[in-house]
Design a protein around this nucleic acid. Structure first.
Lengths: 135, 135
DNA sequence: TTCTATATAATAATGATTATCATTTACAAT
DNA sequence: ATTGTAAATGATAATCATTATTATATAGAA
């Protein structure tokens, strides 16, 4: 996941694009909101406009480089598309997000779609609750 | 589902509240956006302000009379809470929404939550695609 | 019927996101 | 390397869904 991916998406390789991709790639955290990315870059002294952040995120999403999620609430979050589909568990207190994948659920979704004559293109499964272990 | 439900929610029984509840109850369609409800009422010559629609929907959601969904896109949709949990299949072309329930998926979610020390409070599963049968 | 807390409707405000547009830049062709 | 040009940027205005404000109206208890 580097500059060549930006190029392959038919986009020019620019500072904001490189930096946004790098942030998503190298960060501990997996999920970022647009505003969050904006402030993160500013704090690294990378000057960028908020409009550019939104524009680039939209382009990256269209290009399949990143995935956009619409969890509860208003603002969307983005994560790098590492190719491995997964669903999410969201802690409603701390906001912490962890990922999981379950083959049984994936299979059942396909079966259910078929039963209904539905051509399944994508899905979104999110569990909301609270992590009980400390930390 | 009638005026007594409004009263039990600690809310006064007013025209807008009665009409919004009636619309969700008696309509063919199950899912409505706020703006959609607003225009539906106006078309029935029921005068109401958009702010009231939003306020009442928020109150009804808090009271558990209705459920709020955040499907893809920006605007939320609401449906009457008939007590039977279900997930959704959304046709990305026509916007048609149908509901389904699958015990296997429900069970797996609980197991997965337990495995992760996660206290599951709610979840959202939506399949996006297209219905292939003519409809 | 009266009283008062609550609800309403019009409108202003908000917050996230998108559009506009003048300036700048990536990069292909010279 | 220099240039030309389409694409990208950033500042800001606009938009869209939703929420807050507030003066007026009303539900429902007394």
């Amino acid at each position: 996941m580097d500059q060549s991916d930006i190029k392959e998406a038919g986009l020019k390789v620019t500072k904001p694009r490189i930096e946004i991709l790098k942030l998503l790639e190298t960060s501990e955290k997996q999920h970022f909101g647009a505003e969050e990315i904006y402030h993160e870059l500013l704090s690294k002294d990378i000057k960028v406009g908020i409009a550019t952040v939104y524009r680039v995120l939209t382009q990256f999403t269209a290009a399949g480089l990143i995935i956009k999620h619409n969890f509860e609430g208003d603002q969307c979050v983005f994560e790098l598309d590492r190719g491995e589909h997964h669903d999410h568990m969201v802690d409603m207190k701390s906001g912490k997000i962890i990922e999981f994948y379950d083959e049984i659920i994936e299979q059942r979704q396909k079966e259910i779609a078929k039963e209904h004559g539905f051509e399944l293109m994508e899905h979104s499964l999110t569990l909301y609750g609270e992590f009980k272990d400390k930390g």
